[in-house]
């Protein structure tokens, strides 16, 4: 029994946990409990990413999902009430139709996906293998993901940084940087 044979059972366990938490987030009215549950959701999905061998994605999920967004959601809770209002059945039905349609589309597209870990998939045959082979001599760092993000696709990453910076600047201009202004009023 190889390692991936064993780890797939953890994938199933984590997926079941994610499903339970998703249902609980929908059912609960207490917003604080919902914030706590989303924190746990991020922790599970990060552990799941590690179990799927995507260690870098797990690292990002742990830092952004479990750390910052829990605190951000708490800050947002400060501006609203503790309990969620009851939603009408019609809106629930509309949301259910949209999610079921999107889920069905994703399941339909699943047939075209390469098998998990397939050596002949496009990601493992084309330029991806070249990155893996050449990173050690061209970029001289051990982590291939970092080499792709920061060097091979450096301009792309720089563009993303500009976009995130512009978005942050826009939000800061709209709602202010806090603190000092409030005490003058």
């Amino acid at each position: 029994m190889s390692a991936s044979d064993i780890t797939q059972y953890f994938d199933y366990i984590f997926m079941a946990m994610l499903l339970c938490i998703g249902i609980a987030v929908i059912r609960l009215r207490n917003l604080f409990a919902v914030v706590m549950l989303t924190g746990a959701y991020s922790l599970i999905s990060a552990a799941w990413f590690v179990s799927l061998d995507a260690v870098d994605v797990g690292f990002t999920e742990a830092a952004v999902g479990a750390g910052i967004s829990t605190v951000l959601l708490l800050g947002a809770m400060l501006l609203t009430s503790r309990e969620a209002d009851k939603t009408s059945l019609g809106r629930h039905a509309a949301a259910a139709v949209v999610t079921i349609a999107a889920g069905a589309g994703l399941f339909y597209a699943l047939g075209d996906m390469p098998v998990y870990g397939d050596a002949a998939s496009p990601a493992n045959t084309g330029v991806g293998m070249e990155y893996v082979d050449l990173t050690a001599e061209q970029i001289v760092i051990p982590n291939v993901v970092t080499a792709v993000l920061a060097s091979y696709r450096g301009f792309d990453t720089m563009g993303e940084v500009f976009v995130v910076f512009a978005a942050g600047l826009g939000v800061a201009l709209l709602i202010g940087l806090g603190g000092s202004k409030r005490e003058e009023d």
């Binding site: 609980a24 207490n30 549950l37 746990a40």
Partner: peptide, 8 residues
């Protein structure tokens, strides 16, 4: 732990 999180 998840069940405790859910029950409160």
């Amino acid at each position: 732990m998840i069940s405790r999180l859910f029950i409160g």
